[in-house]
């Protein structure tokens, strides 16, 4: 019998962005999020800003917020770690509310990982005092709303760790 996987669908993420009034998505893709990019890019109300280095995404988001827009950052955990000083300086220090959707490369539910990107992701977020929420499937999607609310409360970045990488990588 075929298994019906409980996955996080791109449409769910897109819907959450719409619910929370996102205007701009600053992104640098990983290998698993192309489907999401295609969906977001087709939405004429969402402005996509592609960057060549994830650290730049933090500063672009800060500028968009300063100008009155509502940005989301869409990157992989490897890029999150690359962005450390930019997140510190442009999001934390300036008190910019911003959700960062972070592909959790290497995550496994059973905890046995073979990818150091996964090993260091949560320690990195803890070190930078960034709250995070794990989202593995559509049934977790409410946590995306929690993250949007939380970033407004703390006036800073909040991460959503996308642990299924949109393709059932964790199955």
């Amino acid at each position: 019998m075929a298994e019906t996987a409980d996955v996080l669908s791109p449409e769910t993420v897109h819907q959450k962005f719409k619910e929370h009034g996102v205007t701009h998505v600053i992104w640098l893709p990983d290998s698993e999020t192309n489907f999401l990019f295609t969906l977001l890019n087709a939405d004429p109300d969402l402005h996509m800003v592609g960057v060549g280095r994830e650290g730049n995404a933090a500063a672009v988001a800060a500028g968009l917020y300063t100008g009155g827009a509502k940005p989301v950052v869409l990157i992989q955990n490897t890029g999150l770690m690359e962005s450390g000083d930019s997140i510190r300086g442009w999001l934390k220090s300036l008190k910019i509310p911003c959700v960062m959707m972070v592909g959790y490369r290497g995550y496994t539910r059973h905890g046995v990982t073979t990818d150091t990107a996964a090993d260091f992701t949560e320690p990195f977020l803890n070190a930078f005092q960034i709250k995070y929420y794990l989202v593995e499937s559509d049934s977790d999607a409410d946590r995306i709303s929690v993250a949007f609310d939380e970033c407004e409360k703390v006036n800073g970045p909040v991460a959503v760790l996308v642990a299924d990488e949109f393709h059932g990588f964790n199955r």
Binding site: T23, H24, H47, V49, V51, G55, N56, A57, A58, A59, V60, A61, A62, G63, L64, Y65, T66, G67, G68, A69, P71, D85, S86, R88, G89, W90, S93, L94
Partner: peptide, 18 residues
């Protein structure tokens, strides 16, 4: 200098929002 290298990114954000 909030974090070096970010001025152009920050300015772009403001320009796109306004």
């Amino acid at each position: 200098d909030p974090a070096m290298g970010g001025h152009a990114s920050y300015a772009l954000g403001i320009a796109l929002a306004q």
